[in-house]
């Protein structure tokens, strides 16, 4: 059901996530955009599971678990940065410069 539209929607969401990571400068918003990318992929898995059976749906569980673990570590890191700079703006993260 709705395989093409689902895949198209997830591709759009993924591109939105990528654009957000590249454009936005707030660490938390960038992190939310990464989560948007992962959930766009989840939608792809769900859509494709209609064709290929249950394994795609099982993969979604793994992705959600990983995303939760990543959120725990990521928010802790953002908190650690906030303690140093009183800001989560990536333009202030400039101690290390190439």
């Amino acid at each position: 059901m709705l395989l093409g539209p689902s895949l198209a929607l997830s591709a759009v969401l993924f591109v939105l996530g990528v654009a957000g990571v590249l454009i936005r400068r707030n660490a938390i918003v960038v992190f939310m955009c990464v989560e948007l990318m992962l959930n766009a992929v989840n939608l792809t898995f769900i859509a494709l599971a209609q064709l290929h059976g249950v394994s795609g749906q099982i993969m979604v569980f793994f992705v959600m678990t990983v995303a939760a673990a990543e959120a725990a570590v990521g928010l802790a890191i953002i908190l650690a940065i906030f303690r140093h700079t009183q800001s989560v703006d990536l333009t202030h993260i400039n101690l290390l410069r190439g």
Binding site: V30, F31, G74, I77, I78, A80, I93, L95, L96
Partner: peptide, 9 residues
Amino acid sequence: AEAALKYFL
């Protein structure tokens, strides 16, 4: 901390 944030994102 900055290295961790960059690596994480």
